[in-house]
């Protein structure tokens, strides 16, 4: 593990048991297939891809939340974090073993409505992690909560309000304040703004940039909207059916997308600018296949405009075009 990296994911494979039973054993579905990436401390990685691409599964595995609801999930590969020079593998870490490291990795969910306990006031929600991770007294905790609320741009009176009395933007701020309260090193945000109004999204994205600097965080952000990743993240990884098909510095990948899928994704984004001539777009055929019916060879070949015979025969190797910019395609 390189010293400057805080997180290294190596050949991560995640399999769920499927509903279908084979003789004596269950069929397994591979939701994430040999995913690897490195993240330097203070960096920010955007994970993009359509629904079913496995991006949420990857981040839940990093935060060690998969086994809680699906105890039969199999995780292989390594999720290494670097804590004070020590290397720790979080993949398959036990519940009790994980306890020490939970506070280092915090996650913010997409739906601010369901990610806050409806019976707790905002103040209590932000305070709760302090009870588990610090030995602060009551007044110190209140001070800390107020500090966090100030940092996340929450008014004082939000302290006593319940989630259903807050707007979507305020709820997402409460989620962020809660995540910050444990002093994490890595902050994961799973589609943090997609449920918010357009005029509020910008505020929350700016808040992410601010806290990332101020709290010296490493950020992993999932977004299906590439323009959000472009504006917040320094690195990007594009996923399709459980694989990373292209990754690199955000500006390099978005300026010179190498993989046909990335090209199609970029071309599909509606651009809020007037053009007298309608631009030519790459429109993919069909839907993302179900994970149960993954195409052989290259996973993207069933929708790829460039698909050739070789694509169904074997899987493309990862190729580097410029330094740090990798993609997996024969062409």
């Amino acid at each position: 593990m390189k010293a400057e990296n805080i997180l290294e994911v190596k050949d991560l494979v995640i399999e769920y048991p499927s509903g279908r039973k084979k003789f004596l054993s269950r069929e397994r579905l591979r939701a994430v297939d040999r995913v690897s990436f490195n993240l330097p401390a203070g960096g920010s990685l955007g994970l993009a891809g359509e629904s079913g691409s496995g991006k949420s599964t990857v981040v839940k595995a990093i935060a060690n939340l998969l086994l809680f609801n699906n105890p039969e999930t199999k995780i292989r590969g390594e999720i290494l974090i670097n804590i004070a020079g020590k290397e720790i593998n979080l993949a398959n870490m036990s519940r009790s073993g994980m306890k020490k490291y939970r506070k280092l990795i915090q996650i913010i969910f997409q739906d601010s409505n369901s990610s806050l306990n409806p019976r707790f006031t905002a103040g209590k929600i932000i305070e709760e992690p302090l009870l588990y991770n610090t030995k602060l007294g009551k007044n110190e905790r209140a001070e800390r909560v107020n500090f966090l609320m100030e940092k996340t741009g929450l008014q004082e009176d939000v302290f006593f309000r319940y989630p259903h009395e807050l707007s979507g933007g305020q709820r997402q701020r409460v989620s962020i304040a809660r995540a910050l309260s444990t002093n994490p090193r890595i902050l994961i945000a799973d589609e943090p703004v997609s449920s918010l109004d357009v005029s509020v999204q910008g505020q929350i994205l700016n808040l992410f940039s601010d806290i990332q600097k101020e709290f010296n965080l490493t950020l992993i952000m999932i977004a299906h909207d590439l323009s959000i990743i472009e504006s917040v993240c320094s690195d990007v990884a594009i996923m399709y059916l459980g694989k990373i098909i292209e990754t690199g510095r955000t500006n390099r990948v978005f300026e010179n997308p190498a993989h046909p899928y990335t090209q199609a994704l970029i071309s599909s984004i509606p651009v809020p600018e007037y053009k007298s001539e309608k631009r030519e777009r790459i429109i993919l055929k069909g839907d993302i296949p179900s994970i149960m019916k993954k195409p052989s060879g290259c996973v993207f070949r069933s929708r790829c405009p460039k698909a050739a015979d070789i694509c169904s025969e074997k899987e493309p190797e990862e190729k580097e075009i410029t330094s740090g910019h990798y993609f997996s395609c024969f062409f």
Binding site: F68, R102, K103, F109, S114, S115, N117, T182
Partner: peptide
């Protein structure tokens, strides 16, 4: 309820099963 995000959030902040 166990599948809802607020439970996962509590888990990730270090809450015990009992809690």
């Amino acid at each position: 309820e166990k599948g809802k995000d607020y439970v996962l959030a509590a888990l990730s902040t270090g809450a015990s099963n009992t809690k």
